[in-house]
Design a protein around this nucleic acid. Structure first.
Length: 156
DNA sequence: GCCAACGTTGGC
DNA sequence: GCCAACGTTGGC
């Protein structure tokens, strides 16, 4: 069963355009346990909405696909990386993630304010006030509405 | 730039 | 195990 996710990135750090250019990427640098636990649950074939945070406006800008699961985040072992974790060892890594592939960049980004109009905080966590989680599941019914707003209804 | 929200750290 | 202090996230 395909599951849906939302992954946040600050575009100054890594944007949907970067992913389009690179084709694939290891989703590295997540250092939050709740987010990591979601990353661990990702399975090949799952789809992830790519969300740009810390920009105006914050928005879902495209779609990625999980192409590899249970990827050891290499940056945890790299003393030069800002994501270096001295408590992680190759024998006992702390941070697993997934590799993703570019699927599409939406012709129109779906801004956070548009998402707030359409969805309740309980059904789409990213619209929750104060939410800081950078990886989160998206219910299938919600994902379908984001991907294909029904004919006749106003575009998202 | 501000600041609310919230996760983490560390003293006790 | 509690909780104050601190650091970071991220919308505004």
């Amino acid at each position: 069963m395909i599951r849906y996710w939302l992954i946040k990135s600050e575009p100054d750090d890594y944007s949907i355009d970067d992913l389009q250019r690179d084709t694939t990427a290891i989703w590295d640098g997540v250092r939050n346990y709740q987010a990591r636990n979601f990353l661990r649950q990702m399975q090949v074939g799952d789809l992830a909405f790519f969300y740009h945070s810390n920009v105006k406006p914050p928005a879902i800008v495209g779609l990625a696909k999980i192409i590899e699961s249970q990827v050891i985040d290499p940056t945890q072992f790299d003393p030069q990386s800002k994501y270096f974790d001295p408590k992680a060892t190759p024998d006992n890594p702390r941070w697993q993630t997934a590799s993703v592939a570019f699927v599409e960049k939406f012709a129109e980004a779906i801004s956070l304010s548009q998402l707030k109009e359409k969805f309740q905080p309980e059904e789409l966590w990213v619209v929750k006030r104060g939410n800081r989680l950078s990886v989160m599941p998206v219910e299938e019914t919600v994902a379908q509405k984001i991907l294909a707003p029904s004919a006749g209804s106003p575009a998202l």
